[in-house]
Design a protein around this nucleic acid. Structure first.
Lengths: 244, 244
DNA sequence: CGATGGGTTGACCGGTGTCAAGTTTTGTGG
DNA sequence: CCACAAAACTTGACACCGGTCAACCCATCG
């Protein structure tokens, strides 16, 4: 997006940092996930903090003062309706940089699903870095565009797919992001409630769909947090309709 | 977000342009809509082009080569499932800057709903401007974050609201963005089909909901493209749950 | 051992989708 | 301006998916 200007040997801490980030950017912006590269690039900015499963990392409606880079574990982005209905807008995997507007409240809460490690990067630290080296803006821009792309896929899921299609598609995404020990094995770190609130269904429906898929031999559930997919079964028949 | 460095009297055409943009940015990034300011800021970049209702401005799956700034009329962002199911992910109002990743395909198609006027800004024109004056990055960043916020509201709508709640919420947004001649009057430039594909419903359900609201005296429909809302009726009881 | 929380399963019901007919609006040609 | 056709919208009958409510299972932890 932006030209990568030549940069001479860096002297300050920040500049060596920039060097590393610059090196990673071409890769960052090509593929979908970005994860490893973003982690490497800005992994020693800010300070690292651990949260236990269930803890809230940041609150919807509170002004955003920092960037967050999740380095291990799994988070969820949660929005509430005033009557208590809960929508999970995103599962946040390691390597994701969370960006919010300056002077504006977080549009969702970030909660730890598993125990997690988060790097909290004060806004001005990363912003100054960006100011000093404009090509870094790609890092921020790509992070938001990636979140937008994911959210639009999610929108298509909620707007047009039936219950079983939603679950299948969800599993296929999970398979790509959290592969199990063996091929065709999927780890499911989140609860049925989280899955339901993500897919716009009830836990009963999620459970029933999984039960049916199991009875039909499409999948098996050794434990309720691990799934194996039958060789013959294609999880996501609408794959090419989704961006990733 | 980024520091606004002092900028001396500009000499080239681009620099006067930047001056104007800089002046508008503080406003751009404070409120939700940005419209007027963004329009003013970059209104003579690129070249203006007209499209007739129904024409496609850019295609999903084709590499994004330009920014688009819609200056009049109404567009829709459309995504298709491989079996033909259609989801409208966004209605795009005048003043909206459409940003896509470099080297990456458009994630949706942009189609004209009414006759429209679009300013097509080649990627490098705006990017060079941004490189030359990093504070301009706010313009791009805010545009994407605004789209993200809208999409998340939409996600909450599809995931958690019932048919009548969706229609009510949709009307309340429309009322804010496209007020009619009189107070409590709403213009509806899009078809029932567009509304249905936006709300994840069928045209029959949209029609039935509007019919019921009419019979209950909540609204009246002088024509099917214009609605007046009863003084006593609150369109969106979940307003505070949504960001805008 | 019982209590607790997460997950599964069943019976039932209601909201939406589907299909089809009817109505209104828009557009076109005489 | 009217006549007609086509499109957009509305309305009704009916079916079915998924929500609701309740019972039950199972693992974990005191």
């Amino acid at each position: 997006m932006l030209a990568h200007h030549g940069l001479k040997k860096a002297t300050t801490h920040h500049l060596t940092q920039i060097d590393r980030v610059r090196a990673s950017i071409p890769t960052v912006c090509k593929d979908g996930t970005c994860s490893a590269d973003v982690c490497t690039a800005i992994s020693d900015l800010g300070k690292s903090k651990r949260f236990q499963a269930g803890e809230t990392v940041f609150w919807q409606g509170v002004e955003a003062e920092s960037y967050f880079l999740i380095t291990s574990g799994l988070m969820r982005a949660v929005r509430f309706l005033d009557d208590g209905r809960r929508q999970i807008t995103r599962f946040i995997f390691p390597g994701t940089l969370i960006v919010h507007k300056d002077n504006v409240d977080h549009i969702y809460s970030g909660e730890a699903i598993t125990d997690i490690e988060v790097r909290i990067i004060p806004r001005d630290v990363l912003d100054n870095l960006v100011s000093a080296q404009p090509c870094l803006a790609d890092l921020v821009t790509c992070s938001i565009l990636e979140e937008l792309r994911e959210t639009q896929d999610h929108l298509l899921t909620l707007g047009k797919l039936k219950a079983e299609e939603r679950v299948s598609h969800f599993l296929s995404v999970l398979k790509r992001r959290l592969p199990g020990m063996e091929k065709n094995e999927i780890n499911i770190p989140m609860s049925r409630t989280d899955i339901a609130d993500y897919l716009g269904l009830t836990i009963e429906t999620v459970s029933r769909v999984l039960g049916r898929m199991k009875r039909q031999g499409k999948i098996s559930l050794p434990t309720c947090n691990r799934i194996t997919v039958a060789e013959s079964y294609v999880l996501d028949r609408h794959q090419e309709s989704f961006a990733a």
